[in-house]
């Protein structure tokens, strides 16, 4: 009896210990990866020169990443201008209007599937549709439009969650005052759901910044010219081929002589992700506080 109990006890300790180790193992892997990238990349970034000089190209990739930062910012703006309104509107339709019918099922099915498609497929689509069929050539515009379809499910899902969490009583009391549905949505529902929607947009910025496969296929990779936001020739908006930070990192890392620079670009990317995560956590903290007060 006693040995049986001690055997169970031993098994218990061993199993719980293993679970604990696996949890901490993942944290240490993360810390190791980030530490490794920072160890080799941080000195270059801290010299600031790297961030604010234009790239010169060449085998050793002299110069900095100013144009890549610019291209990344353009890409974020370009994709969000398209994806954010469409995503939020779609979420509003799904939570506030959608009847239980075939079309709604189809929309939900489409969103589920879009979320599961790998980015390389979005890249192929961008290449076939935007670059070749619509004749955008390799351009940030083609990249931004492909990426905006890719982040659409992210924005729709998080916005939907946010809209669902707005109490039904808010809507009813607004409607009882005699205002119509759009006024209720714009004045009551959207403001209360705003933090959640913002979270979705920040998440999708993270996806956009980290995306590389789509952009290699749809946005091309020229580096030495400064990308323009608008132009007088077709396709007018974001017309230039450009490398974002993630794509630049890929080219740097795969050419042996420029790999040291890739770590610096990696540090910049990790900083962006850290900053976005910090923002998201702050928002959800504030949101929880607000709910607690209520």
């Amino acid at each position: 009896m006693k040995t049986a109990i001690s055997k169970i006890q031993a098994e218990e300790n061993f199993a719980l210990g293993a679970l604990k180790i696996s949890g901490w193992l993942i944290v240490s892997v993360l810390i190791f990866i980030i530490g490794y990238i920072f160890y080799y990349g941080l000195p270059e970034v801290l010299s600031w020169h790297y961030l604010f000089t234009p790239p010169e190209g060449g085998r050793h990739d002299n110069g900095g990443i100013l144009y890549q930062i610019l291209a990344t910012i353009y890409l974020i703006i370009g994709s969000l201008i398209v994806a954010a309104p469409i995503g939020v509107f779609a979420a509003i339709y799904l939570t506030e209007y959608a009847p239980q019918n075939f079309i709604t099922t189809l929309i939900r099915f489409a969103i589920e599937n879009l979320a599961g498609i790998p980015s390389i497929i979005y890249g192929l689509f961008g290449l076939a549709f935007f670059v070749i069929f619509l004749k955008f050539e390799y351009s940030l515009l083609a990249g931004a439009l492909s990426v905006s379809i890719m982040v659409l499910p992210v924005i729709i899902r998080t916005s939907e969650e946010a809209l669902k969490s707005v109490p039904q009583a808010f809507r009813q009391s607004s409607l009882a005052l005699g205002v119509n549905k759009w006024q209720t949505i714009s004045k009551v529902v959207l403001p209360s759901a705003f933090p959640g929607i913002l979270t979705g947009i920040l998440l999708s910025i993270g996806r956009i910044v980290g995306e590389s496969a789509v952009l290699i296929l749809a946005a091309g990779g020229s580096i030495t010219a400064i990308p323009r936001f608008v132009s007088t020739t077709y396709p007018y908006v974001l017309p230039d081929s450009a490398r974002t930070l993630a794509v630049h990192l890929y080219y740097q890392a795969t050419s042996y002589d420029a790999r040291a620079k890739a770590f610096a670009t990696g540090v910049v990317l990790i900083f962006i992700v850290l900053f976005l995560n910090w923002c998201i956590n702050q928002i959800s903290k504030g949101y929880r506080k607000k709910l607690a007060v209520r």
Partner: peptide, 30 residues
């Protein structure tokens, strides 16, 4: 996990999911 432990591990997992794939590729390559 205790709440304090969760508050370490959960952000770590969140961060892991946010790191761009090329950064993982760079780590692998280097």
């Amino acid at each position: 996990a205790s709440p304090a432990t969760q508050q370490v591990i959960r952000p770590a997992v969140q961060l892991l999911s946010g790191i761009p794939s090329v950064v993982f590729g760079l780590f692998g390559l280097a």
